[in-house]
Amino acid sequence: MDKIPILKIGHFLMVAIQVDLYDRLALNLEADLVQAVSKTGAKGVLIDISSVSIVDSFMGRILGNIAGMSKVLDADTVIVGMQPAVAITLVELGLPLRGVQTALNVEKGMELLQKKIKIIDEEEAFDDDSTLQ
């Protein structure tokens, strides 16, 4: 059976969806990804959908689920590379993917995640300082 590979890069997990997802595959991805987040303790998930030409409400729900579930496991999700036609269609469909962060491409997505982690690190460092005093 087809599987979408999940790559671990530093603190992050990365998934590049290269095919148009059918339902089974999307559901598997959701399950696998959540497993992987929990196993690796990743701080961020990057999903590249630049090759995806259709995102319908089902697919949108899966993306939302992944973001929500990862959040519970303390990982931020960034969707990157959405095609203009897909973005316009999603807005018209009435699915603005609230709660999901987006970035133009993998590079910018990485930057965004790194910035988040840095902020968290600084906050933790600050917390540590305050406990010392």
């Binding site: 339902d23 030409s53 259709i54 995102v55 319908d56 409400s57 089902f58 095609q83 203009p84 036609a85 897909v86 316009i88 269609t89 018209e92 469909l93």
Partner: peptide, 17 residues
Amino acid sequence: GLVNQTKLITAASELSR
């Protein structure tokens, strides 16, 4: 055009689902 194609296919996808 690409945008209208995407809209139509997405709509069809919803209905067939």
